[in-house]
């Protein structure tokens, strides 16, 4: 008879979900940056960029899709062992979202002033994806910087030794 493997604790699964989401957000920022750049690119470059965008989109789905489904399924099954919705990574994610919102808001104000003074004449097809790229880029990079330190589980190592 095979032993049943204990399911991954919900809190641990949720942390993995947040990490993957941040990676997904970074890739999405890259995708929007390429979309903005594509507007000013000439020659065969826009065609090549389209392929790159499709590849990034597929990568995002592969990275984030399965774990999102896992989290959704676990929440639906009511066997969650995660009583606390909060944790370090949840708090880190919220801080990252707040920084991204603040940064984007300031950028929007600056852009608004520049557009009013006709200092720039970028079309909406460039401004919108560029802003989205900035917002998602700031959020994901802020999250990664908050979680740079990788620590080990001390006593678990001693017990294994």
């Amino acid at each position: 008879m095979s032993e049943d493997k204990a399911p991954e604790p919900m809190a641990q699964l949720y942390d993995r979900f947040l990490n993957r989401s941040a990676i997904g957000m970074f890739l999405l920022a890259l995708l929007f940056a390429l979309t903005a750049f594509e507007q000013s690119a000439a020659g065969e470059l826009p065609g090549a960029l389209k392929y790159a965008e499709k590849a990034i989109a597929i990568l995002i789905i592969i990275l984030v899709g399965p774990i999102t489904f896992q989290v959704y399924r676990r929440k639906r099954s009511f066997v969650s062992t995660c009583d606390e919705p909060e944790g370090f990574l949840t708090s880190s994610f919220q801080k990252a979202a707040m920084r991204a919102f603040t940064g984007s808001f300031i950028l929007l104000i600056v852009l608004n002033v520049l557009l009013e003074k006709e200092a720039v004449d970028w079309p909406a097809a460039v401004i919108v994806p560029a802003l989205l790229a900035f917002n998602l880029g700031v959020a994901s990079l802020s999250f990664f910087l908050d979680n740079l330190e990788d620590d080990e589980d001390d006593f678990a190592e001693e017990e294994d030794a």
Binding site: P9, A11, Y14, C82, G87, F88, D151, F155
Partner: peptide
């Protein structure tokens, strides 16, 4: 207790404990 065991016992992630 390891950080992981404590985390499971109170329903948070190990990163939160550390």
């Amino acid at each position: 207790m390891s950080q992981g065991e404590l985390a499971v016992a109170i329903g948070v992630s190990r990163k939160t404990i550390s």
